[in-house]
């Protein structure tokens, strides 16, 4: 069974989804990520879905679960690069992923994770909800 590779970049984990994701693959990503966050003590997870052509309710739920699980494991999750057509469809479907942070691209996502980490180490409770 193929798996989606998880890259470690400093305190963050980077996942680039480049295949047409079927349900089992999504579930194994969810499990793998939880494992890796725990084993690497990662503080942030960045999921790049810019090449994903659709996000249906199942994948949407997996993304929300990943965000929730990593929050419990003290890591922030940012989903980046969602295509406009995918976003429109997801909203129409009734999914707005309220617990998931988003950014336009990997670069912005990284900035967001770094800013979150900094504000945390500075001791403030800065929990900005959107990236700029």
């Amino acid at each position: 069974m193929d798996r989606i590779p998880i890259l470690k970049m400093g305190p963050f984990l980077l996942v680039t989804i480049q295949v047409d994701m079927h349900d089992r693959l999504a579930l194994s990503l969810q499990d793998d990520l939880a494992e890796r966050i725990a084993s690497t003590e990662a503080r942030g997870v960045l999921i790049d879905i810019s090449s994903l052509e659709i996000v249906d309710s199942f994948i949407g739920r997996v993304l929300a679960n990943i965000a929730a699980v990593s929050r419990v494991l003290d890591a922030q999750t940012v989903v980046v690069g969602m295509q406009p057509a995918v976003a429109i469809t997801l909203v129409e479907l009734g999914l707005s992923l309220p617990g998931v942070r988003t950014a336009l691209n990997v670069e912005r996502g990284m900035e967001l994770l770094r800013a979150a980490l900094e504000s945390e180490t500075l001791g403030s409770d800065g929990d900005a909800s959107t990236a700029f």
């Binding site: 052509e53 659709i54 199942f58 295509q83 057509a85 429109i88 997801l90």
Partner: peptide, 14 residues
Amino acid sequence: SLVDQTKLVTAASE
């Protein structure tokens, strides 16, 4: 259109 394609494929997936 790309949006309609995406909507249709997503509905098919569901």
